[in-house]
Amino acid sequence: MVWISSAGLTGRMNEHPILVTGGTGKSGSRVVSMLRNKGVRVRVGSRSGEPPFDWTDRNTWDAALESVEKVYVVPFDGEVLTRPFVQRCQERGVRRLVLLSGRGIDVPGYAGENSAAGKTHVDGEAAVRACRLEWTILRPAWFAQNFSEGFFLDAVRSGELRLPASHGAVTFIDAEDIAAVAVTALTENGHAGMTYELSGPRAVTIAEAAATISQATGRTVRYVPISPEDFVAELVAQGWPQRAAEDYADSVGPIRRGMDSHISDGVQRALGHPPRDFSDFARNAAAAGSWPS
């Protein structure tokens, strides 16, 4: 049995909370859980949080930042709000910040010229690098959880992934690894000024990903490569706005162009061990009931 002195408990209770924006999302929710498991006070930054945090309502920012010294920033895609938020963090006494950015930010031709998410990350990184805080930037590859919690979930459940990815491969990163790096950078020293490029240990094509999920679930999931034009047309026919459908197709473009297959060493550098494999993710997601068997 481990005994904790009353002084130790009091010290924990008096610690400044860590604000996690996007605290209910794929990486943020995991950061919240890991911090709480470490006994760290957490403030969940979301519209349903206490106090509420809304990226689009700057009147909510100050209450969310009250007594906060460390922040995990998950930007609001499509808007250039990271810069003013970082400035407010400085004014409110925050001293450490971990920014979730994206792969390919400084790679010519990676994102389309009209990529809303790309503009968000480019300006956000520039703002963070210029600030006075201890900062760490995370640049993850595609989340493996996009198959179980995000973009591809409905397609996986239907049994058919129709994407304009051709035969390109991706070093999918497990959100658990992203969160673990974020928590380490938030709670330990030695990560200030670091940019961690995060990926899984190997490149996986969409067809291979579908086959791995099929094996994990015992049901067939197949990949059907289609052209960007047909992909956009299908989404519009399903009720998507034209611009949103085009943005989705553009986001898949780097896979098709072979720009997402490289392995990055950020997980190893930050945590001292290799990242999880896609097959591990698929088995865990199947066991958790993410997909019908």
Rank of each mutant, 00 (worst) to 15 (best):
V86A: 04
L99G: 01
D77V: 09
G104T: 01
V71S: 00
R92W: 00
T60Y: 04
R58E: 15
K119C: 05
L99T: 00
P84L: 13
V80A: 12
S67Q: 14
N114P: 06
G102N: 07
V98I: 08
D57F: 11
D57N: 15
P108W: 09
R58Y: 09
P108V: 07
K119I: 03
V74P: 01
Q90Y: 07
A64T: 02
Y110C: 08
R83K: 14
N59Q: 15
V80K: 10
V98N: 01
V74N: 04
D54N: 14
D54K: 13
H121L: 13
R95I: 02
G93E: 11
S67N: 15
F53R: 06
T82S: 13
G78R: 11
V68N: 01
D123N: 14
G104Y: 00
D106N: 13
E79W: 09
N114S: 13
G118I: 04
S101H: 06
E125S: 12
V94N: 02
V94A: 05
A127F: 06
V71T: 02
A117Q: 15
T120Q: 04
V71W: 00
H121D: 02
R129H: 05
S48W: 07
G109H: 11
G102R: 04
A126G: 13
G49S: 11
K70V: 02
A130R: 15
G109R: 14
S101L: 10
R58T: 12
W55D: 01
A111T: 02
P84K: 13
F85Y: 02
L99V: 03
T56N: 13
E91Y: 07
A127H: 05
A130P: 03
S67F: 09
V68W: 00
F76P: 03
R43V: 03
R43G: 04
G45T: 04
N114K: 12
R129W: 03
R47A: 09
V74C: 10
V71R: 01
